[in-house]
Each structure stands twice: as C-alpha cells, then as structure tokens.
Design a protein around this nucleic acid. Sequence first.
DNA 1: CTCAAATTTTAGCGATTGCTACAATTCTGT
DNA 2: ACAGAATTGTAGCAATCGCTAAAATTTGAG
Lengths: 149, 149
Amino acid sequence: MTTATSISEPHRRTRRDHATETAEDYVEAVADILKRRTKCRVTDLARRFAVSHVTVNRIVERLQKEGLLATQPYQPINLTQKGKRLASKCRDRHEIVHRFLLAIGVDEETAAIDAEGIEHHVSPRTLQRFQELTDSQSTLTRPGSSSRP
Amino acid sequence: MTTATSISEPHRRTRRDHATETAEDYVEAVADILKRRTKCRVTDLARRFAVSHVTVNRIVERLQKEGLLATQPYQPINLTQKGKRLASKCRDRHEIVHRFLLAIGVDEETAAIDAEGIEHHVSPRTLQRFQELTDSQSTLTRPGSSSRP
DNA sequence: CTCAAATTTTAGCGATTGCTACAATTCTGT
DNA sequence: ACAGAATTGTAGCAATCGCTAAAATTTGAG
C-alpha cells in the first residue's frame, strides 16, 4: 500500500460538483415554480436564489446547453424531459432528508435550511436509512423538548 | 412581509460558501496530516484532494492571506492559531456526523464519504441532535430490518 | 397605437478553482 | 560537492458564479 492513508473515494472534484449542485438546485426550483404558477421566468429564479437576474441568465444558458432546461430568447423557462427527471429525483431526495431531520427532532426552520445544504451530499445508501428511520418513527422524535420558538 | 414566499433564510450565496468549505477542508486536512507526520507539504494536500499541486499552492496562498495557514516559500505548511481553532471545530463536527451515520446503520465507507460532504451543511442545532441520538444509541442501529409493519 | 415600465440579454469586471507547461528551489544519492 | 530527482512556484488558460451598466425586447397603461 503506497499511499493508503485514507484518500481514495472521498474528496470530490469540487468545481465540477458545485456545478452539479447548481444544476440540481435550479431544476428543482424551476419544477417547484412551475407547479405554483403557469410559467417560470428569470426573475422568479433570481428572487428565489437571491442573486442577480444576470447570474440566473447565464446559469440557465448553461443548463440549456446541458439539456436540462429549454427556453427561447425573452421567453419563460421550461424543463426538458431530462430536466424533469432530475428535478423529480432531487425533490424526492430533498423531501426524504427534510422529513428525516424533522423526525429526529430538528425544528422546522432549521430542517428546511439544513436539508437544502445536505441533500446534494447524501448517497443512496444513507438516503435509504433516512427513509427507513423516518417511516419507523420508533423513538427518534424525542428531543428534550423541541427548542424554544 | 413583502415577499414571504419561502425565500428568506435558505439558499446561500454559493460562491462565498464554497470558498469557506474549501478553507474548512484544508485546515482540517493540514491538522490531520500534521498529526501523523512531522510536517505538511503541498504534495500531501495535492494527493489527499486529488488535485494538482498548483491548485493547492494557490489555495494555500489564499488561506495564508486569510490568516488560517502559515508558510514560507518552499517551506512546509503550518496552522495559525486561528487555523487550529477552525480545524478543531471542523474535526469535532466531522466526527459527530460520521459517528451519527454509523449509528443509524450506514456502512463505514459510505459514512466516511457522506460525512465529508454533509459536515459543512449541518447547523449547530442539527449537530446537537446527531450527537444526542448517537450517544443514546436507542434503537437506531437496526439496518436491514425492512420488514413491513 | 404609442410610450413607459418591466424583463431579458449582452458586455465586461473580479474571485475561486481546475489544468498544463515551465522555471526555481530544495533534497538526495554517489 | 554536484547532478539528477523531487518539490514548489509562476505564467497563462478555461469554467463557474457573483456583480454593475447598458442595450434589446416584451408587456402593459393610457
């Protein structure tokens, strides 16, 4: 074993992974917005992510090239089939994480925030355990008494 | 509440947050390497993160400007007091997440990988629940029991 | 319809992180 | 001590994401 300290699998190529996270956040957001309103526009995404519309525009452009989003100049944004599939997967994963956090006694607001950050880093195996433990809500929900409101 | 759709707290300014994650990963790595060997060098970090030594070099330079790392040209890398404090905090958090994943029945390898990704996104409150549930290892460790009730 | 408002796009800047190629320095074996 | 190996630093490129300013387009009010 030449360099078997503990390097192998972990430690992602951050740059690429961050771009992937962005893609997931965006398709998830577009899907969510389309569920509430009739169309999703650059401005909607800019508000949601609290960034400028210019930033959104460029990211949408990239995701279009990657075949996740579809749009025409000055027109609303739609999901491709590929985008819909990814959005659905992300949504499921997101909800499992969110419900799990609630199940172990994390308050609603914290759970919402943490789920956003955690969702991209949960492997299928861990996700499955989250799911199982949320379903069989054995004795998890037992925080000394949920925090103070 | 002007725009209280559900935007407020979540959704970080990714760029800044990613830089912060990198900082945490690096001080944590430097601390870990210094615990095993006598000194930490650029090459060690390049191997660990599977990136080129050039990338490491530039990041070390940035973290030095931020007062987390200390080094001289062509010399090994050390942690400043501030860097040590951050590394210690990250290490604790990392271990809590890791142990929690093991406690809920995730296999060792998956737990190691996921802990790396999750650690940066766990709030103090969620971390506390992780800790509490790991300690009181009630009925968590029960993988494979996918029996339907 | 027409003109102003809202929205979207383009141009251009900076920061961070990835790379290769090459130069500079330190380390090592003889 | 010295030459070659290993390590570290520099130069310069690209991708992603953040911004402001200004141009282009669409929308909407009168």
